[in-house]
Design a binder for these strands. Structure first.
Lengths: 172, 172
DNA sequence: ACATAATAGTTAGGAGGCTAACTTAATCTA
DNA sequence: TAGATTAAGTTAGCCTCCTAACTATTATGT
């Protein structure tokens, strides 16, 4: 993920934005900081997972399987749930299966599809890493009050709504 | 970037977190939403830049060169400014130079280093895409008041501080 | 001053995403 | 019900990032 390391000062942003009539300096600053914090959190997770011998993708698959799919789920659903392509899921499952954290089974009703289940080893692995993982997640927001967390979620939601409506952006 | 598509409901998060003493359900929800919005914004940018024939990385390099480095800057500084490895910068510069948006020159004082300058074609390219780019950025935060933008930046800053101090996280 | 360290850029190889195309199986439709 | 379309999973090949190692040059420390 490629994100600006030193976010320009408000003055620099003002100066740049002045050259473009539709630019909004505060909008630029807001998005730069959002991207920066988002990618920092992401990288923090990646490197922590790497220490544990997995990747963010593999962790997400395991969490999806653990969460509401204890009876097994198809790779397609995992792809949809993780917001990733089916091809990517195939690769993740190859690795997870090699490590015996997950197993592939034939589906009984549809001979095209397979059913993915988390193994006992996979569940034990999750149980071994989740306490620390959740402690780290809690740490990241530990300087925010509950009220502030709610506010942050609300403001992020407003941006999410704009993303959904990006096609409606005025042309000029 | 691999981020949960459907963020679990508060109830589901509560249920999961109940099994781990140090887990904070609101923290989990906050971080999931931050990651989700961050990656959506990132993907939106990636696909827009792809339509324009560049990548986020190449765009960032051009913006760094345009911003305060009109007299040229070394690849190392670009790597630092973009928060990316020198090896990655080498590849980005190869592509940018091939498209004549950037040129490599020998440094006069240090024969190890080279100086990167944005070309007139590169400047013209930026001028052709920035109005639309900034309009899209403004759109994303257009449902937030200035006060809300400030609040969001403040809250993100608090998370950034926790990231910096991740090593100080209590062990138990 | 000269051996050792550090620095700049590149290259090689790997990881984790992606799309497009392929195989097999199920479903629709005329 | 035969033929076409759709769907599931995989494979192949690309992109962009990474780290580690290499070459060439500069800086340092005794």
């Amino acid at each position: 993920m490629f994100t600006l390391q030193d976010i320009p000062s408000s003055e620099e942003i003002d100066q740049l934005a002045a050259r473009y009539p539709d630019a909004n300096p505060r909008a630029i600053e807001t998005m730069l900081r959002l991207l920066r914090v988002g990618s920092d959190v992401m990288n923090l997770g990646e490197s922590h997972f790497a220490d544990l011998g997995i990747s963010t993708g593999r962790f997400t698959i395991l969490m999806l399987l653990n969460r509401k799919y204890k009876d097994g789920v198809s790779p397609s659903e995992l792809a949809e749930g993780g917001g990733v392509s089916r091809a990517t899921v195939t690769g993740l499952l190859d690795n997870l299966e090699r490590d015996e954290l997950v197993k592939r089974e034939h589906a009984s009703n549809d001979r095209r599809s397979i059913i993915i289940k988390i193994t006992d080893k996979g569940l034990a692995f999750l149980d071994s890493i989740l306490p620390t993982h959740f402690r780290r997640v809690a740490w990241l927001t530990s300087s925010l009050s509950d009220q502030e967390k709610t506010t942050l979620i609300t403001l992020l939601g407003k941006i999410a709504q704009q993303i959904e409506q990006i096609e409606n952006i005025p042309k000029t």
